[in-house]
């Protein structure tokens, strides 16, 4: 009977820890769940905190939206692995608690300082697998951070505006999803590759990354 009560209490605790207390979503996501959005927002704030040499923080970069888009174009197997990664980070505080008070709370419920310390613990662990998990998580977040146009502009590495010339191959292949009969170009549209104009620093930026767009 006592054992049964312990199992029930444990199950209730697990249920509450895993499923309850997450804020509602501001908008719909294709792949991410409510708890994952909360986790990714909290990790992004700890990984790219406000201040420092780059004005944009992880929260400014809205990483959950980016990661949702990325996962939606990834394979099912990749998505499963990413979901597992988020679950692990969120709940591994049970085994690797954050320093300070109530350090065993789930990751997204920790204070910012505690979250920073937890991430540092993963990154500098003597356990190879922990470091590997950290690098995987940081890679995902970094991909999203660098997809934020203001970040790329602030770092001086935003892509340039380029008008693609029409070459022979463009008369052969339609855009992905279209039929061969939908190819818009004819031989009259062919243009030459411009090799006279290197894209020097200061050249106009890609429209999606220009200041006006943001």
């Amino acid at each position: 009977m006592v054992l049964w009560l312990i199992v029930c209490a444990l199950a209730a605790w697990l249920l509450i820890r895993i499923g309850f207390g997450y804020p509602p979503l501001a908008h719909g996501y294709q792949v991410l769940r409510r708890n994952e959005v909360a986790l990714l927002a909290s990790v992004s704030e700890a990984m790219f905190p406000p201040g420092g040499h780059i004005p944009s923080s992880g929260l400014d970069a809205n990483l959950p939206d980016y990661i949702d888009r990325w996962m939606s174009v990834s394979s099912k197997q990749t998505r499963v692995l990413m979901h597992l990664l988020y679950f692990l980070i969120e709940h591994a505080t049970v085994i690797f608690p954050a320093p300070g008070r109530a350090g065993r709370r789930r990751f997204s419920a920790l204070d910012l300082d505690q979250r920073v310390a937890v991430l540092q613990g993963w990154g500098e662990s003597s356990l190879y697998l922990r470091r590997l998990v950290f690098v995987s998580l940081r890679s995902i977040l970094t991909m999203g951070y660098f997809a934020h146009p203001p970040v790329l502009r602030q770092l001086g590495v935003a892509p340039f505006a380029i008008e693609s010339p029409i070459c022979e191959a463009d008369l052969l292949y339609p855009r992905i999803g279209a039929r061969s009969t939908d190819i818009a170009y004819t031989a009259d549209d062919l243009t030459t590759v411009r090799d006279d104009a290197p894209l020097l620093p200061g050249s106009p930026l890609h429209p999606d990354f220009s200041e006006e767009q943001s």
Binding site: M47, G52, H53, I54, V116, Q120, R138, Y145
Partner: peptide
């Protein structure tokens, strides 16, 4: 983003390194 994956660190130290 792909290059940055190779850099060490986390938090403010990592962010400042990206700068």
């Amino acid at each position: 983003s792909v290059l940055a994956v190779r850099l060490p660190g986390s938090g403010m130290a990592f962010k400042n390194r990206l700068a």
